[in-house]
Amino acid sequence: MDSYLESSKKQFRYYKMLAEKATKQLTDEQLFWRPDAESNSIAIIMNHIAGNMLSRFTDFLTTDGEKPWRNRDAEFEATEQSRAAIFENWNKAWECLFNSLDTLKQEDLESIVYIRNDGHTVMEAINRQLAHYPYHVGQIVYIAKIQQGSSWQSLSIPKNSSTSYNANKFNNEKGRRHFTDDF
């Protein structure tokens, strides 16, 4: 079970890294760009992830994951924030998540936590967020890639590089490692 927690932390770090590498390729204007009034900008998505994360992982084992102080609807409003403010909130949320995960012990994984009064084992709650955050990180990456066009710097295996990537991987001895160890 310790490997579950370590794997979860590595996966969360991987998706955080993908979002940050994507946003580093953008200007401030691109961070706030929306294709239309009904769509979300990357900044809005980042605010939503941060709001969700702070709500879910503050007092994770002892209070409902939907905190009374959270204003989810406001997370989706376009606001005049700076890049620095977006990333300050983003980093605060990730720190909250990792601090919470770092305190967990194997025996906590079957404990029940609540999200909007729905009971989840700790493992189920972590899995829920491991589906939710990558869903939004994919949106961030896609929006960034659209804006960058041919200037986009791949975050994984670049186009037409699979053969050489696989050849390199298969030149290594078989061994147990996490897929994120290469990044």
Results as ranks from 00 to 15, higher is better:
residue 133 Y to C: 11
residue 148 Q to L: 12
residue 86 I to Q: 07
residue 95 E to I: 03
residue 147 Q to P: 10
residue 111 S to C: 08
residue 129 Q to Y: 05
residue 63 T to C: 10
residue 156 S to Y: 12
residue 41 S to Y: 11
residue 36 D to V: 11
residue 28 D to F: 15
residue 116 R to N: 10
residue 91 N to A: 11
residue 60 F to M: 06
residue 94 W to Q: 15
residue 123 M to G: 00
residue 81 Q to W: 09
residue 28 D to A: 08
residue 103 T to V: 02
residue 139 Q to R: 07
residue 141 V to I: 14
residue 121 T to C: 10
residue 25 Q to L: 13
residue 19 A to E: 05
residue 79 T to W: 00
residue 90 W to Q: 09
residue 85 A to Y: 03
residue 137 V to H: 13
residue 18 L to A: 14
residue 38 E to Q: 01
residue 74 A to Q: 00
residue 27 T to V: 12
residue 127 N to T: 05
residue 19 A to Q: 08
residue 154 S to Q: 05
residue 129 Q to V: 06
residue 66 E to P: 03
residue 99 N to W: 09
residue 110 E to W: 15
residue 135 Y to Q: 09
residue 94 W to K: 07
residue 116 R to G: 13
residue 116 R to D: 12
residue 50 A to Y: 04
residue 88 E to I: 13
residue 104 L to G: 09
residue 74 A to C: 01
residue 82 S to R: 14
residue 110 E to R: 15
residue 24 K to F: 12
residue 90 W to S: 10
residue 18 L to H: 09
residue 37 A to Y: 00
residue 84 A to I: 12
residue 40 N to F: 09
residue 49 I to Q: 03
residue 29 E to L: 13
residue 78 A to W: 03
residue 66 E to F: 01
residue 32 F to W: 06
residue 26 L to V: 00
residue 144 A to K: 09
residue 100 S to P: 11
residue 29 E to M: 01
residue 138 G to A: 05
residue 135 Y to N: 07
residue 83 R to D: 07
residue 26 L to N: 06
residue 144 A to S: 13
residue 146 I to C: 05
residue 18 L to E: 06
residue 31 L to A: 01
residue 48 H to A: 06
residue 72 R to M: 14
residue 97 L to T: 06
residue 157 I to M: 12
residue 154 S to F: 09
residue 87 F to W: 04
residue 41 S to D: 10
residue 103 T to S: 12
residue 49 I to M: 12
residue 72 R to C: 07
residue 109 L to H: 03
residue 88 E to K: 11
residue 21 K to W: 00
residue 37 A to F: 02
residue 16 K to V: 11
residue 132 H to F: 03
residue 19 A to M: 10
residue 157 I to N: 09
residue 28 D to S: 07
residue 81 Q to N: 09
residue 53 M to K: 10
residue 118 D to Y: 05
residue 56 R to S: 15
residue 74 A to R: 03
residue 134 P to S: 04
residue 120 H to Y: 10
residue 21 K to G: 00
residue 58 T to C: 03
residue 61 L to A: 02
residue 63 T to K: 04
residue 144 A to L: 15
residue 147 Q to R: 04
residue 84 A to K: 05
